[in-house]
Computed example of a mutant assay.
Amino acid sequence: MNLKNILSEIRDGILYLTINRQEKLNALNKTTLAELAELVIYAGQQADVSAVLLTGAGEKAFVAGADISEFAGYNAAEGEELARNGQESVFNAIEHSSKPWIAAINGFALGGGLELAMACHIRLASENAKLGLPEVSLGLIPGYGGTQRLTALVGKGKALEMILTAGMITAAEAEKVGLVNQVVPQKELLTRAVSVIQLIQKRAPLAVAAAIRAVNAAGEDGINGFEMEITEFGRCFDTADFKEGSGAFTEKRQPEFKGN
Rank of each mutant, 00 (worst) to 15 (best):
P185K: 11
A217Y: 05
L153A: 15
L164C: 08
A207L: 12
L199S: 14
G219F: 06
G167I: 10
V208S: 12
R213C: 09
A172I: 12
A218I: 09
V208M: 10
G225T: 05
E227P: 02
V184C: 09
L190T: 11
L179N: 02
R192G: 02
E175A: 15
A193Q: 03
Q198F: 09
R203S: 15
V194E: 15
N181I: 07
P185C: 10
N224A: 11
I169Q: 02
E161C: 04
V180K: 02
K202F: 01
M162W: 05
L164A: 12
I223Q: 03
I197F: 11
A207F: 11
A171K: 05
M162R: 02
V177Q: 08
A218T: 09
L164N: 14
E227W: 07
A217N: 07
V196I: 15
L153Y: 09
A218D: 11
L189I: 00
V215H: 09
A207C: 03
E175Q: 15
G167Q: 15
P205G: 05
A210I: 07
A174W: 03
V154N: 00
L190C: 01
L179R: 02
G178V: 06
A166N: 00
N216H: 01
G219P: 01
T191A: 14
G178L: 05
A210L: 01
L153C: 09
L179H: 04
E220K: 10
A172T: 14
N224P: 01
A217Q: 07
F226P: 03
A172L: 14
R213D: 13
L199W: 10
R192T: 13
N216V: 00
A218W: 04
V177W: 10
G157F: 08
E161K: 05
V184F: 04
A174F: 06
V154Y: 00
A159K: 06
A159P: 00
I223F: 00
L189A: 00
D221P: 09
M162V: 12
A204T: 07
A211E: 13
M162D: 01
Q182C: 04
L199R: 15
L199D: 15
A207D: 04
L206S: 14
G219Q: 06
A218E: 11
R213G: 09
F226I: 14
G157V: 13
E188H: 12
V177T: 10
D221S: 15
V184R: 08
A171R: 07
Q201T: 00
N224E: 04
T170K: 07
G167C: 12
K176A: 14
M162C: 04
P185L: 13
L164G: 08
E173G: 00
T165E: 10
F226H: 12
V215K: 12
